[in-house]
Design a protein around this nucleic acid. Structure first.
Length: 480
RNA sequence: GACCCGUUAGUCAAGUGGUUAAGACACCGGUCUUUCAAGCCGGUAUCAGGGGUUCGAAUCCCCUACGGGUCGCCA
């Protein structure tokens, strides 16, 4: 039988980096084994689920290249399935109706916690008579369904990552499987779906490990085959707390919008909690598919390190096809109004040259834009410190001469411009930096950036001459 | 509080009884250079603590400490 795994987010928030990693691990296992990756939406919480979050999760999955073979299935549309199994459990006397009110339960729980007893439900509704039930229902109470759970013995969770995890069944109680509004509770819906969908490996975050004995009890009560489990460690914030908003971006879409590449996020996330066992760090998705294994997933939670992600992003920024980087960068330029909404092929070609020039000195697509604004607009000032240092009256003369020299360069290429510049420096008896620095400032307004002659070639002769003379004028004005 | 999982440098981590305890990010230095990066070369820094077991422990066992998770009619 082929392997079947699933990712089951609940649409109550955006796709979190932790969720994304869980999805990635599932996807890798499926792709590696030729099995199926199923997407299920756990939307039984009607209050908190929203269409907006659903779309955002789907978009993030697609952006990461995590395609699914089946689904998305929606738990909200599978009520019949849960009802059928709940009724079966009731009929087989493996479950019962409970009329306790949430407030009563909360009070009991609190008291138990305070007294140092395990906070388990005492099973007081287990033996309600028909008369009891009728009386309570007449009083307007809507029952929940609870599973009868034996508290004898122990339950062993066979986990592919941590081996057997033993739980004393004392910690269990008759937990709720159907809420009073008729919706299935998480553990129940999850087990019914996983079983009915033929899920063979449940790969999920470690926070679910403590829930697993409950789910196992359900598999057994329902007579369903148990899957393999693999609980992957959590991803923590730098202060070792749960990753949250106050630690910065947490959702995949935020990273996308901040100019991170899916290649980088995928690679980084794969290495958070998993290691190939070799010295490699840069492992693209296709390679991950071949190399990934649950056995090599680590047991300890890992801390999210934005710095390393950023480094990796910088790496992918220069190694991924220029064509792809350009098209990913385009919306960032458009957002700044530097490139039109429907760019002509000529504009795109220009953009490609610009991106090619600046991409190896920045880390994100946002930085690509920041590093390249002067290619698209003349609306900037000279960097103050640089102007003080390089825009001397002598420089004005040099820039004027450089302009004259550039005017005659044919064809106007980076190589030809450089040759002309070096020759000019020699003729004037100045060291090349003396000529280069003011030129860079004149052309870009900045003291740092890509190779000077590459800039010239992309900018074009006309623009260069214009900016050179503009700088010369500026210097003379400043001198007065 | 109870239960479960965990603990190798600031961070990600390799390591499965005998290693000079890999590698990467970050940091520091050097090199290259028209600038800034990148690249290249080099450096600082790690086995939570305590007991065992053993000729020998980062590796096996126990305790403590610390961190995380669960204990919801959230998922």
């Amino acid at each position: 039988m082929s392997l079947r795994v699933r990712f089951a987010p609940s649409p109550t928030g955006n796709l979190h980096v932790g969720g994304a990693r869980t999805a990635l691990f599932n996807w890798l296992v499926a792709r590696q084994s030729g099995g199926q990756f199923i997407l299920r939406i756990d939307d039984t919480d009607r209050e908190r689920s929203s269409q907006e979050f659903l779309e955002s999760i789907l978009a993030a999955m697609k952006w990461l290249g995590l395609d699914w073979d089946e689904g998305p299935y929606f738990q909200s549309q599978r009520a019949e399935l849960y009802r059928r199994d709940a009724e079966r459990l009731l009929a087989e006397d493996k479950a019962y109706l409970c009329y306790c009110l949430p407030e009563e339960l909360a009070r009991q729980r609190e008291a138990a916690l305070k007294a140092g007893r395990p906070a388990v439900y005492d099973g007081r509704c287990r033996d309600l008579t028909r008369q009891d039930r009728e009386r309570l229902e007449a009083g307007g109470r809507q029952p929940v369904v609870r599973l009868k759970v034996s508290r004898a013995g122990e339950t062993v969770v066979r986990d592919l990552i941590r081996g057997g995890v033993v739980f004393n069944n004392e910690v269990l109680d008759d937990f709720i499987i159907v809420k009073s509004n008729g919706m299935p509770a998480y553990n129940f819906a999850c087990v019914v779906d996983d079983a009915l969908m033929g899920i063979t490996h449940v790969i999920r975050a470690e926070e679910h490990l403590s829930n697993t004995p409950r789910q196992l009890a359900l598999y057994r009560a329902l007579g369903y085959a148990e899957p393999y489990f693999a609980h992957v460690p959590m991803i923590l914030a730098p202060d070792r707390s749960k990753l949250s908003k106050r630690h910065g971006a947490t959702s995949v879409e935020e990273y996308r919008d901040q100019g991170y590449l899916p290649q980088a996020l995928t690679n980084y996330l794969a290495l958070l909690g998993w290691s190939p066992g070799t010295e490699e760090e840069i492992i693209p998705q296709e390679e991950l598919v071949k190399r990934f294994s649950l056995e090599r997933v680590s047991l300890n939670p890992s801390i999210y390190d934005l710095g390393k992600l950023t480094w990796m992003n910088g790496h992918y920024l220069v190694t991924v096809d220029l064509e792809e980087i350009t098209s990913r960068a385009l919306p960032f330029f458009q957002r700044q109004g530097l490139v039109s909404q429907n760019p002509s092929p000529k504009e795109v070609d220009y953009l490609r040259q610009v991106v090619g020039l600046v991409r190896d000195r920045v880390k994100t697509l946002v930085e690509v834009v920041d590093a390249a604004t002067y290619f698209f607009t003349d609306d900037w000032d000279y960097e103050e410190k640089g102007a003080g240092k390089y825009f001397t009256s002598e420089a004005a003369e040099l820039l004027a001469q450089a302009g004259e020299r550039l005017a005659g360069v044919e064809p106007f290429t980076a190589e030809a411009a450089e040759a002309a510049y070096r020759q000019l420096a020699e003729e004037l008896g100045v060291k090349t930096p003396v000529l280069f620095h003011p030129t860079r400032l004149a052309l870009t307004g900045r003291t740092m950036g890509p190779g000077l002659f590459g800039i010239m070639a992309v900018l074009g002769r006309e623009k260069c001459l214009e900016r050179l003379s503009r700088a010369a004028v500026w210097i003379r004005n400043a001198a007065e």
